[in-house]
Structure formats: C-alpha cells, structure tokens
Measured scan of single mutants.
Amino acid sequence: GLTEEQKQEIREAFDLFDTDGSGTIDAKELKVAMRALGFEPKKEEIKKMISEIDKDGSGTIDFEEFLTMMTA
C-alpha cells in the first residue's frame, strides 16, 4: 500500500491538474497536465487515457481513479 506521504503527494498532483476545483479531472485538464509534463497528446490519446482510467464511465477522472493510475 501507499504511505500517507505518498498519498498526499498524489493528492497535490491531482489538485494541480483539477484546475477548476471540481474534484475530477476532465479531458481538457488532463491535456493541460500532460503538456506541463512535456507531452503533446492528441485528442484521441487523451480520450483513450481517460477511458482506460475512468472505471465508472463518467468521462472524468476522480481521485480514486487517479490514485489507481499513479500506482499501477
């Protein structure tokens, strides 16, 4: 499992990506986040990433899903 410290770091990354503070990361926010990390993702790639992570089919990534992605 994760230490509380690791969870906190992932939470901070999540909050950075969640620019509108909605508690979820949408495609637009993910794209901005990827760019910040030096990637140039295409729209299809973003969609694919979200569909792989987005277990509940909401079209957005919540913290639990993000946590799973970061620790996979």
Rank of each mutant, 00 (worst) to 15 (best):
G1A: 09
G1W: 13
G1S: 10
G1C: 14
G1I: 12
L2A: 04
L2G: 03
L2Y: 11
L2M: 08
L2T: 04
L2C: 11
L2S: 03
T3K: 04
T3V: 03
T3F: 03
T3D: 04
T3R: 05
T3S: 10
T3I: 03
T3Y: 04
E4V: 09
E4I: 09
E4P: 13
E4K: 10
E4F: 10
E4T: 09
E4S: 10
E5Y: 09
E5W: 12
E5T: 10
E5R: 12
E5C: 14
E5H: 11
E5D: 09
Q6N: 05
Q6A: 07
Q6K: 12
Q6L: 11
Q6W: 14
K7S: 04
K7F: 12
K7L: 13
Q8S: 07
Q8F: 09
Q8C: 12
Q8K: 11
Q8H: 10
E9Q: 11
E9R: 15
E9M: 13
E9A: 12
E9T: 13
I10K: 01
I10E: 00
I10H: 03
I10W: 14
I10P: 01
I10Y: 13
R11H: 03
R11F: 04
R11Q: 04
R11S: 01
E12R: 15
E12N: 13
E12M: 15
E12F: 13
E12P: 01
E12A: 14
E12V: 12
E12I: 13
A13K: 10
A13E: 02
A13C: 14
F14Q: 00
F14N: 01
F14Y: 01
F14V: 00
F14G: 00
F14S: 00
F14P: 00
F14W: 05
D15C: 13
D15G: 05
D15L: 13
D15N: 15
D15A: 13
L16A: 07
L16F: 11
F17S: 08
F17G: 12
F17Q: 03
F17M: 09
D18F: 06
D18G: 02
T19A: 08
T19I: 13
T19C: 12
T19Q: 08
D20V: 04
D20E: 04
D20M: 05
D20Y: 04
D20K: 04
G21A: 06
G21W: 04
G21N: 07
G21T: 03
S22Y: 03
S22R: 05
S22C: 05
S22Q: 03
S22F: 03
G23D: 02
G23R: 03
G23P: 01
T24S: 09
T24R: 09
T24N: 04
T24A: 07
I25N: 00
I25L: 14
I25Q: 00
D26E: 07
D26H: 06
D26A: 08
D26Q: 08
A27G: 04
A27W: 12
A27S: 08
A27Q: 05
A27N: 03
K28R: 10
K28F: 10
K28W: 13
E29H: 13
E29T: 12
E29I: 11
E29W: 14
E29N: 13
L30R: 00
L30A: 03
K31M: 15
K31G: 11
V32L: 15
V32Q: 14
V32E: 14
V32R: 15
V32P: 08
V32G: 14
A33L: 15
A33M: 15
M34C: 08
M34L: 12
M34P: 00
M34I: 05
M34K: 00
M34W: 06
M34A: 02
R35W: 07
R35I: 09
R35D: 04
R35L: 09
R35K: 11
R35Q: 11
A36H: 12
A36C: 14
A36N: 06
A36P: 01
A36V: 13
L37P: 02
L37I: 05
L37N: 02
L37D: 01
L37S: 02
L37V: 04
G38R: 02
G38V: 01
G38M: 03
G38P: 01
G38N: 03
G38Q: 02
F39A: 02
F39Y: 10
F39V: 07
F39H: 07
F39M: 06
E40A: 11
E40L: 08
E40C: 15
E40Q: 11
E40V: 11
E40S: 13
E40Y: 15
E40K: 15
P41C: 15
P41H: 13
P41R: 07
P41F: 15
P41Q: 05
P41L: 15
K42R: 10
K42P: 07
K42A: 10
K42C: 14
K43P: 15
K43W: 14
K43L: 14
K43T: 15
K43F: 13
E44T: 07
E44Q: 08
E44V: 06
E45Y: 12
E45A: 08
E45H: 11
E45L: 14
E45T: 11
E45C: 15
E45G: 05
E45N: 08
E45I: 13
E45K: 08
I46G: 02
I46Y: 06
I46C: 11
K47R: 10
K47I: 13
K47S: 12
K47V: 09
K48E: 06
K48V: 05
K48G: 05
K48Q: 10
M49K: 04
M49N: 02
M49R: 05
M49T: 02
M49C: 12
I50S: 02
I50N: 02
I50W: 08
I50R: 02
I50Y: 05
S51Q: 12
S51F: 06
S51Y: 06
E52S: 13
E52F: 14
E52V: 12
E52N: 11
E52Y: 14
E52W: 15
I53C: 10
I53T: 04
I53G: 06
I53Y: 15
I53V: 11
D54Y: 10
D54S: 12
D54R: 05
D54V: 12
D54C: 14
D54W: 08
D54G: 11
D54A: 09
K55T: 08
K55M: 08
K55Q: 09
K55L: 09
K55C: 07
D56W: 09
D56H: 09
D56M: 09
D56S: 11
D56K: 12
G57L: 08
G57E: 10
G57V: 05
G57F: 13
S58A: 05
S58P: 03
S58Q: 06
G59C: 07
G59W: 07
G59Y: 08
G59N: 04
T60E: 09
T60H: 06
T60D: 08
T60P: 03
T60M: 08
T60K: 11
I61H: 00
I61Y: 04
I61N: 00
D62W: 04
D62E: 05
D62V: 04
D62L: 05
F63Q: 01
F63G: 00
F63T: 01
F63M: 03
F63P: 01
E64T: 09
E64C: 10
E64Q: 10
E65C: 12
E65V: 10
E65T: 15
E65H: 07
E65Q: 15
E65N: 07
E65S: 12
E65P: 01
E65K: 13
F66S: 00
F66R: 00
F66Q: 00
L67R: 02
L67N: 01
L67D: 00
T68M: 12
T68Q: 13
T68R: 12
T68C: 10
T68K: 11
M69N: 01
M69E: 01
M69P: 00
M69W: 15
M70A: 03
M70P: 00
M70R: 01
T71E: 07
T71L: 13
T71R: 08
T71V: 12
A72P: 07
A72F: 14
A72V: 08
A72Y: 14
